[in-house]
Amino acid sequence: MDVLELLEAASLLVPEEAATENDITVRDIWDYLVHDEWDIALGLLEELGDARSLPLAFWEQLAEAAEQLRLERSATWCHWRCSEIRNGVIRADLTLRPAAEARRTTPISGVGVLRPMWDIGRLSPTGGRAVSIARLWVENMPTLEPGGRATVRLVPLTPAHWTHVQPGQQITMHEDRTVAGTAVILEVCHPATTMPAR
């Protein structure tokens, strides 16, 4: 499919009553599509998708459209949202340890590149602490400095490890044996149980 077809197909998956914070609706998006303003339509569709739960096919179509438009950050975000639907997502308030107290002295990327280990209270078969891996996306910030604090989105590598995690729970982030940061769980969304066909 070309960009226009992808954006049209994605817009058909958005309920008509859905609106952005600025009261932009799917009908408004169709006006942008008619006038070949595809990048604006894509951004508005992302905004509509961020405000409500939409199916995997919606985000897959937006990701492909963003790739065709060479909008790298949008493509990365749409692929991230696909991962959230497949694996679930945990939102948390993360505070990194200051550079003087931790091994990390450089900012972490905010766009889902880092895959740190997390102590979420699991035990190994021998009774010791076990860690689980989750990719990390920093909300509304391109990077997070050592000592900084932000709301983050975690996509578990093994969703079954995270089923016991609940809002209010404190977990620790590790990039090696030392604690790199501490997070308090804000929200847990489990993986979609049924996946729409592509």
Rank of each mutant, 00 (worst) to 15 (best):
P125Y: 11
L136N: 03
V138Y: 07
G112K: 02
V131A: 10
R103I: 02
L136H: 02
V131W: 14
A150D: 06
T143V: 12
T126W: 06
L136G: 05
G127L: 07
I120C: 06
L123T: 11
S132C: 09
A130L: 11
P125S: 05
P107A: 14
T143R: 08
D119P: 00
T105G: 12
G147C: 03
N140L: 05
A150W: 09
R103A: 06
G128R: 14
S109A: 13
A130D: 10
L136T: 14
N140W: 06
E139Q: 12
A150G: 07
N140G: 01
M117I: 00
R104V: 04
R122S: 09
I108C: 02
R149V: 03
P116F: 03
S124E: 13
W137H: 13
R103N: 05
T126D: 15
P146Q: 07
R129I: 12
L136W: 04
G147P: 03
P116E: 09
M141G: 00
L114D: 11
I108Q: 00
L144R: 02
R122Y: 00
A134T: 06
V131I: 09
R115E: 15
L136R: 02
T126C: 04
V111D: 12
R135H: 08
V111P: 01
P116H: 12
M117V: 00
N140E: 15
A102H: 08
S109K: 10
R135K: 05
R149S: 09
L136V: 15
P116V: 11
G110W: 07
I120D: 08
R103F: 06
A150K: 07
R103T: 02
L144Y: 04
I120S: 04
I120G: 03
S132L: 01
P146E: 09
R103H: 05
I120E: 04
G112F: 09
G147D: 09
P107Q: 08
T126E: 15
A102S: 15
P107S: 12
A102D: 15
G128Q: 14
E139A: 09
R104P: 02
G112Q: 07
W118F: 14
M117E: 13
W118G: 04
I108H: 04
T143C: 08
P116Y: 08
V111I: 01
R104T: 01
I108M: 13
T105Y: 01
R129W: 00
G112E: 03
T106G: 01
A102F: 02
V113H: 10
L136A: 06
T126F: 09
A130I: 00
E145G: 01
P125G: 09
V111G: 01
P116A: 04
P107M: 09
V111S: 09
P107K: 02
R115H: 15
R115Y: 13
L136I: 14
R149Y: 03
P107W: 12
T106Q: 12
I108E: 01
I133N: 02
T105C: 02
V111F: 12
P146I: 10
V138R: 06
P146D: 06
P125N: 07
M141R: 13
A130G: 05
L114S: 12
R149H: 11
S109M: 03
S124D: 14
L144H: 03
E139T: 08
A102R: 11
M117D: 10
N140D: 14
V131C: 07
G110S: 11
